[in-house]
Design a binder for these strands. Structure first.
Lengths: 180, 180
DNA sequence: GGGAAAGCGGACTCCGGAGTCCGGTTCTGC
DNA sequence: GCAGAACCGGACTCCGGAGTCCGCTTTCCC
């Protein structure tokens, strides 16, 4: 059964609105805000996604996929420690302007568990490579990097920091923490 | 006008209960929980402190003072870098078992602004000493340390991690990030 | 173009936690 | 020991955000 034209259109509007609103305000934004931005009633939002979490997962999963792709690319570079450092700095910079990416990386929602696992696996391989190359302390695991990175970025977000350079700087400190 | 005997007794009960409940559950615990633990109605809690924030400030400020004293002691030690490292590890370990200390260090409530400033000043002096001793990167400021430390510990708390050794380990990573 | 199904939206309920009210109880000064 | 002020506590309101309901509108298929 095909979706009615107006339903399809509204679904897309809602998705766009959710992307914008959540990127600007983070996941604490209300469904009402998303509905208002889309120019529809909130029931319409709930008709497309049964819960707020489902909508959030829909918009964040894309961001997580993009990030995973970047991790994989970094993993395949020859100089693992340098690739890792670059990845962290770039990721922080991206997060500075897009809360959605940040939330996606942080989120614990079950809907993204598989994607997170995939991302983590690639990260672990990158880290293993960096350790093998002697550019990283040997006892490090991907959870450590995730925790430090997420911790720092969460604090930056909470502080309302928007300057990408500052985010970059802290990512640099996290990278420094991983050195042998 | 002296406080009535029962009022004074209940005030102390509430304070003790708040310390316990917030240390165990963090600040997300409700006033109802505190009142129940104290064996008192919630109105009694509000009679002593006008808002939840005020009560929280009352119980956390002690913890912050204790921590500040430790920072000051560290500042006055001869080997600043080592004192700094020890301070971080000990603080993390303490936070693992006492959410209240953690919340006190993280909290942004205006009621503790003065105490936070005092703590930060001592930390800055400790850091300056460590930099002068060549044990820390020269561009570091106390906010950096605070942000990294709070970020990591917040994540640990959110993850429900209770093993002090793990908290210590991450504090060690934060210290590593400060090395020149 | 007409009718039925699909979709719409705003007003509604529900829920949890902060903060308030007031009738009943307990302490204190005389 | 008694008057009355101070205090008590549980039931209440208030608030904001998630999720639901239902009378009305739009679309689609014939």
């Amino acid at each position: 059964m095909r979706l009615r034209a107006d339903a399809a259109r509204n679904g897309a509007l809602v998705l766009d609105a959710a992307r914008e609103v959540f990127a600007e305000q983070g996941l604490s934004a209300g469904i009402d805000d998303v509905a208002a931005r889309a120019g529809v009633g909130k029931a319409t939002v709930y008709r497309c996604w049964p819960t707020k979490d489902a909508l959030v997962a829909a918009v964040t999963s894309v961001r997580v996929d993009e990030f995973t792709a970047r991790v994989v690319a970094a993993r395949d570079e020859p100089d693992a420690p340098a690739a890792f450092a670059r990845l962290m700095l770039d990721a922080a910079e991206s997060c500075a302007g897009n809360k959605l990416l940040h939330e996606g990386l942080i989120s614990e929602t079950p809907a993204l568990a598989a994607k997170r696992a995939q991302c983590r696996a690639a990260m672990q391989e990158l880290i293993d490579g960096a350790i093998a190359a002697g550019g990283m302390r040997a006892d490090l695991r991907s959870e450590d990097v995730t925790l430090l990175f997420n911790g720092a970025t969460s604090q930056l977000k909470a502080a309302g920091e928007t300057d990408p350079a500052v985010w970059r700087r802290y990512a640099g400190l996290v990278v420094a923490a991983t050195r042998p």
